[in-house]
Simulated scan of single mutants.
Amino acid sequence: MEERYENAAVTWTQQFCRINSFLGAGKREAVFLAEKILKESCDATVTVYDADTEEPYIIAEKICENPKFRLLLEGHLDVVSPEGMEHPFYAEIKDGILYGRGSVDMKGGCGSMLAAFVAACQKPLEGDLYLMFSTDEEYAGEEIKKALEKGHLPKVDFALIAEPTNGTMATAHKGEAWIDVEFFGKSAHSSMPHMGKNAIYMATAFLHNLQAYLLEMKKMVHPLYGAPTMSVGTIEGGSTPNVVPPYAKITIDIRYLPGTSSESFLKVLQNLAVLCKTENEDFSAKITKIGEWNDVCTDRESPTFRRIWQAASKAMGKEVGLTVMTGWGEGGFMNLYGIPVVTLGQGKMVCPIVRKNRSMWMKSKKWHWLMNRSSTRCVA
């Protein structure tokens, strides 16, 4: 890419990073900025969807006659909470480093894809090129699903997401599902606990059997994807110490291997409930899947993938390494619609995070990400 577009990528990243796109108003501002840049810089067709909502998204398209290929560049402009950061939206560049919330996850990627899209629009194309920026990835990541369902995006031949992968190309990530397990007992005064049925005790028995199964899960190791996981993320129950709790609930996060599904693990949980019932006839539970986010599993041997990988390696001047992602990304919903997708971006996470309601929140007072893009490194 020409130097002017590399410089534009840095400039546009800095402009995006000065916007507090954790908030709804900031999400709209970021999307409208992208719209302004696109309309001023190229002749693509640009459309903003859900413009008057808390989560707008934008799609640009450059269409040609008789396209031989259709490629989507996709990313998100929303960020996680800036709470605890000092000057999270100053977006200052010091010693070649751009500091700002979201500079890597993933406004740096968005700035780069924006520059690449604009640059491509200046040349004759033999295929259709699409660019989409969402603003709900850190919460639910369902705007890409909405765009495909409503026909705002076609089923393209390939998609690339510029999330940080430290310069390697991720071809897969695990699927994710959330499962509620509710336990139903009977209330009684704690001075006469035998008159009640303690739902927390039921949850404890279930968790005891679940922990035994988790030891077996560690043996289900795939040479490329690792092992599937289950983790109990929340537990609730009871209202006051002097009442036998009639209700309790746990929520389990399941990460299943690419190319599989959550159904086998849902069956495992149901079998554990049956086991608990044989151990205690008063045991009563209900198991419900409350959410699912699809896996990514792109065939590394397909001609389309090889073409994309070779093009990326040529552009970067070296063979791009292949990897898998540990977390979830919007590519999961693309894969659900049969679109091959890879994730390729500079930068990597260097500090642990925790998700809450599909949103990332800081676990430490300052949360740094490092990015190498062109001559500028970004820290968010």
Score class of each variant (00 low, 15 high):
117 F>W: 03
83 E>N: 11
36 K>I: 00
199 A>W: 09
62 K>H: 05
361 W>R: 04
18 R>K: 15
149 E>M: 11
61 E>W: 01
44 A>D: 06
302 S>E: 05
51 A>V: 01
70 R>E: 14
157 D>Y: 05
276 C>D: 06
218 K>C: 13
287 I>D: 10
166 N>S: 15
312 A>V: 12
195 M>Q: 12
37 I>A: 02
43 D>R: 09
64 C>T: 14
149 E>G: 02
213 Y>E: 12
30 A>E: 04
346 Q>K: 04
7 N>H: 05
281 E>I: 14
306 R>V: 06
27 K>D: 04
2 E>D: 12
106 M>A: 08
264 S>P: 10
346 Q>V: 06
136 D>V: 02
350 V>A: 11
205 A>F: 00
187 S>E: 13
94 K>Q: 12
135 T>M: 07
359 S>F: 00
271 N>G: 00
360 M>D: 02
14 Q>R: 15
257 L>G: 07
290 I>M: 06
161 I>V: 13
109 G>F: 08
122 Q>E: 15
251 T>I: 05
159 A>V: 13
297 C>E: 08
347 G>M: 10
226 G>P: 06
294 N>M: 01
96 G>D: 03
222 H>W: 10
196 G>Q: 04
367 W>G: 13
163 E>Y: 10
127 G>Y: 00
149 E>N: 13
285 A>P: 11
161 I>S: 04
346 Q>C: 01
362 M>V: 07
10 V>W: 05
207 L>G: 00
161 I>Y: 05
107 K>S: 07
248 A>T: 05
341 V>F: 03
48 V>F: 03
31 V>L: 07
324 V>N: 11
